[in-house]
């Protein structure tokens, strides 16, 4: 039997860990225990960048992290982070699980990574300590922590906020002390890092969708017999579907939970004004990295059932 090291940053309480357990079971079942995963949650093998690097170099076999962590390697992935590109989860899944998504995974191959499947981080939501966010005006002047992704920074500049990238490890303290007013993350992160303890207002802004990408060291993948390769991809996708389902179930629970913890929640906003103001971000990405055809592909599956 082959033991494979699989690392990710999410804590044990997260759906990523639960689904990784499922992934491990599925893989063992499909290969008659020939492939066995050894799980390393909580970033014990390093942060996302270190995990990606380790997987490329082969010191780690598989890793799972947000797509934006790969955009330094493959700039086209910036397209996925562009605000208001995906209408809803179904739209995102249609694109990612289809031809377009596969093309993006394949683009990672030249970087020694075999993209196995897209898992789910969910839509990003804005939280802050200052005021309920309902319109773009409410975002103006907020010191907001974003990822270091160029398109996230650009979008919040367009909205008139002061975006600053900062490591997730420093975020809780920065929000607690007020060095930052606001942050934007999917609900799962808000919950597992307990950011609701240091934030007052949550807006279900759904301003950008964040997929997770599950990758494997390419030479390692190529060395597997075809039947095991097939099992690997199937198990990764099935576990991914399960994780998406878990996240969908968790949304209501997390919104209830943060309300109980004292957060004010704005559940619906009109996305139109936000989308209008941040629309130039799309051209910004195209000018910088290309990807016009990918945007087109995303748009064509927008309303297909």
């Amino acid at each position: 039997a082959t033991r494979l090291r699989f690392g990710y940053e999410a804590p044990r309480s997260d759906s990523q860990h639960v689904a990784s357990e499922r992934f491990k079971e599925l893989l063992a079942a499909k290969t008659g225990n020939e492939l066995q995963l050894q799980l390393f949650p909580e970033g014990t093998l390093g942060n996302a960048q270190a995990l990606i690097n380790g997987t490329r170099g082969g010191t780690i076999d598989l890793e799972l992290s947000g797509s934006s962590n790969f955009s330094g390697l493959e700039p086209l992935l910036n397209v996925l982070d562009t605000p208001f590109t995906f209408k809803d989860e179904a739209h995102a899944y249609r694109f990612l699980d289809g031809e377009g998504g596969q093309k993006l995974l394949d683009a990672l191959e030249k970087h020694n990574l075999k993209g196995l499947a897209y898992w789910d981080n969910g839509f990003r939501m804005i939280t802050n300590t200052k005021r309920p966010v309902r319109t773009p005006d409410d975002v103006k002047g907020l010191k907001i922590r974003t990822t270091a992704s160029a398109v996230h920074i650009e979008a919040f500049k367009l909205l008139g906020a002061n975006p600053a990238p900062m490591p997730l490890a420093e975020l809780y303290t920065a929000l607690e002390t007020g060095a930052m007013d606001a942050q934007e993350h999917p609900l799962g992160v808000l919950w597992s890092v307990k950011l609701y303890e240091v934030q007052k207002h949550l807006t279900l802004s759904r301003h950008a969708y964040s997929p997770l990408i599950l990758v494997m060291n390419k030479p390692k993948f190529d060395s597997l017999p075809p039947a095991q390769q097939k099992a690997m991809i199937e198990a990764a996708r099935e576990a991914g579907a399960y994780q998406r389902q878990l996240n969908a179930q968790n949304v209501a629970m997390i919104v209830e939970g943060v309300k109980k913890a004292g957060m004010q929640v704005v559940e619906t906003i009109d996305p139109q004004p936000f989308a209008r103001i941040t629309a130039p971000a799309r051209q910004f990405i195209i000018n910088k990295f290309g990807g016009e055809d990918i945007f087109k592909q995303i748009d064509t599956v927008r309303d297909v059932p």
Partner: peptide, 19 residues
């Protein structure tokens, strides 16, 4: 040496510097 060669094509998000 291995890691340096591996990260030539990996760019840091904010500054664009190669890792």
């Amino acid at each position: 040496w291995h890691q340096t060669m591996l990260s030539v094509d990996n760019h840091a998000p904010a500054s664009g510097l190669s890792l």
